Simulated assay, not measured.
Amino acid sequence: MTLGQYLTSKSFFKRLALALVIVIAIVFAVLQYLSFATDHGNEITVPDLRKLTEEQVGSKLDELNLEYVLLDTVDYNADFPKYSVVKQDPLPGAKVKDGRKIYIKVNSNGFGDVTVPDLIEKTLRQAEPTLKALGFEIGKKTYKPYLGKDMVLEMSSGGKKLKAGDKLKKSSVIDLVLGDGKVAFEEEVDSTQNENGTQTETENAE
C-alpha cells in the first residue's frame, strides 16, 4: 500500500480520530487539574469591613473562611468610629481564594497632640496655611490697632491665650488677633493736626 493510499484509507482516519480523542482528553484533564489547583469557580467576594470593630471583622471573615491581619493604627478620622476599620486590602468586592488574608488599618481613639508654632508677628498669609497644615482650624479673627496689617499679635483656643510650644489636640480651633495697619496713619494725622494747632496758636500770639 502506497503512502497516498494509506492517507485516504479508513484505517488512517480511525487512528487519526483516536489520536484527536486522546489529545482532547488530555487537554480536558489538564484544565480540570488547573481548575482544582487554583480553586477556580470557588472565589469569595471580599466584604466591606470599613467602620467595623476588630471583633466584628473576625466574626464576619470566619463565616467566609477568610483571615485578617491588623497592620497599623491610623491618625484619628472623625468620619469613622474609634477603633473601627478605616482601610482594607483587598478592597470590598474583590474576588479572593479561600483562606485569603485581608489586611486592615483601624482608627485611633482620638486626635493626637500638636505643638503650637511661633506665629507672633507673622502675617496672616503665612500663619493660616501653617496652622491648617498642622491640622488646626482657623476660628475667629479680630483686629486691634497695630502698625502691621494682618500681622498675628495673639493666638487663643477656647478663650485661653496660646504661646509657641503649647500642646493642642489636632483639629482644635485657634482664634487670631491681628493688626489693623491703621496706627501709622492715625499717628500721622494726629501729628499733622498738632503741628497745625501749634502754628495757629503761634500766629494768634503774634
Rank of each mutant, 00 (worst) to 15 (best):
17 A>V: 09
18 L>E: 10
20 L>S: 12
20 L>W: 04
21 V>R: 05
22 I>D: 05
24 I>A: 15
27 V>T: 09
30 V>R: 08
31 L>K: 06
34 L>W: 09
35 S>A: 09
40 H>W: 07
40 H>F: 14
41 G>E: 12
44 I>R: 08
45 T>E: 13
49 L>M: 11
53 T>Q: 00
54 E>W: 01
54 E>F: 01
55 E>A: 13
55 E>P: 02
56 Q>T: 05
57 V>W: 00
57 V>L: 01
57 V>N: 00
58 G>E: 14
58 G>S: 13
59 S>V: 14
62 D>V: 07
64 L>K: 15
67 E>P: 02
68 Y>P: 01
69 V>S: 10
70 L>G: 00
70 L>S: 06
70 L>H: 08
70 L>I: 14
71 L>P: 01
72 D>Q: 08
72 D>G: 04
73 T>L: 04
74 V>E: 15
75 D>H: 10
79 D>C: 03
80 F>E: 01
81 P>N: 13
82 K>M: 13
84 S>C: 04
85 V>N: 00
86 V>W: 01
87 K>Y: 14
88 Q>E: 13
90 P>G: 09
90 P>M: 10
90 P>C: 12
92 P>F: 12
94 A>L: 09
95 K>Q: 15
95 K>F: 04
100 R>P: 03
101 K>F: 12
103 Y>F: 11
105 K>V: 03
106 V>E: 00
110 G>W: 04
112 G>S: 11
112 G>V: 11
114 V>A: 03
117 P>D: 06
117 P>W: 05
121 E>R: 10
122 K>V: 06
126 Q>C: 02
128 E>L: 14
131 L>W: 02
132 K>Q: 05
133 A>E: 15
133 A>Q: 12
134 L>H: 07
136 F>C: 02
136 F>M: 02
137 E>I: 08
138 I>R: 06
140 K>A: 06
141 K>S: 09
142 T>N: 08
144 K>I: 15
146 Y>T: 05
147 L>N: 11
149 K>A: 08
150 D>W: 06
150 D>T: 04
150 D>N: 14
151 M>A: 07
